[in-house]
């Protein structure tokens, strides 16, 4: 009996070292970060309502399986910044506004933490989601055709219709337009930009090539 108790006690003590150090510490310290006042407003900026809905589509589609959202620290590697995926390393405060932090573990596609600064044309995003291999030859991203629907052209071509010419082009008189989910998702992706700086970002900035 005593041995069982002492065993339980040791298990619990050792187990709790990591539980306190990682979980409770993160919750108390990182979980209570406050936003900072930057020169151009509160940082990190709030997401728009549409972008918040888009983050849900991002989660539902499992984008996180192949795309990370983290720029690594310069003392570990320069490659993320050399690839123009960001201008500075990510810090914990960057994820303050995220409902779920989509850090990601595997890069089968480029990092997305600054995709909104890299690519600014919504139509490009729609086109890429619809037929990735046509827009970026060699891409292994699957098509997200279920986020779009085909409709008859009513008078003029819709502003959001995808300029399809390749194998997936709709029949004449029809156009492919994004659903609301696709519009939300693209609004979210466009809002992914960390083009501001935060106090804790290290002073070492990458030299411009």
């Amino acid at each position: 009996m005593n041995r069982l108790r002492s065993l339980f006690l040791i298990i619990i003590l050792l187990f709790f070292s990591s539980w306190l150090g990682v979980v409770v510490y993160s919750y108390l310290e990182l979980g209570h970060f406050k936003s900072v006042a930057g020169s151009d407003g509160i940082l990190p900026p709030y997401y728009s309502g549409q972008a918040i809905l888009g983050a849900r589509v991002y989660a539902a589609s499992g984008c996180m399986t192949c795309h990370t959202q983290q720029i690594r620290q310069l003392d570990v590697t320069h490659s993320d910044i050399d690839r123009k995926w960001g201008t500075r390393p990510s810090v914990a405060l960057d994820y303050l506004r995220d409902q779920t932090a989509f850090l990601g573990k595997r890069r089968m596609g480029p990092d997305l933490s600054n995709v909104g600064s890299r690519l600014t044309d919504p139509i490009w995003y729609y086109h890429h989601l619809y037929e990735p291999d046509q827009v970026t030859p060699g891409s292994i991203m699957p098509s997200y055709r279920y986020l779009f629907h085909m409709q008859k052209i009513q008078g003029e071509l819709s502003a959001q219709a995808i300029p399809l010419t390749g194998p997936h082009a709709p029949p004449p008189g029809y156009e492919v337009v994004p659903t609301k989910d696709a519009q939300d998702l693209v609004a979210y992706l466009l809002s992914l930009k960390h083009d501001y700086t935060l106090p804790e970002v290290s002073a070492e900035t990458p030299s411009a090539p």
Partner: peptide, 22 residues
């Protein structure tokens, strides 16, 4: 613990990374 912080209730995004990995 992990569900309490990440799915049942959600703590601030800045603290989620370490807990996901933990």
């Amino acid at each position: 613990t992990a569900n309490l912080m990440l799915t049942w209730g959600k703590i601030q995004g800045s603290a989620q990374g370490p807990i996901q990995c933990w």
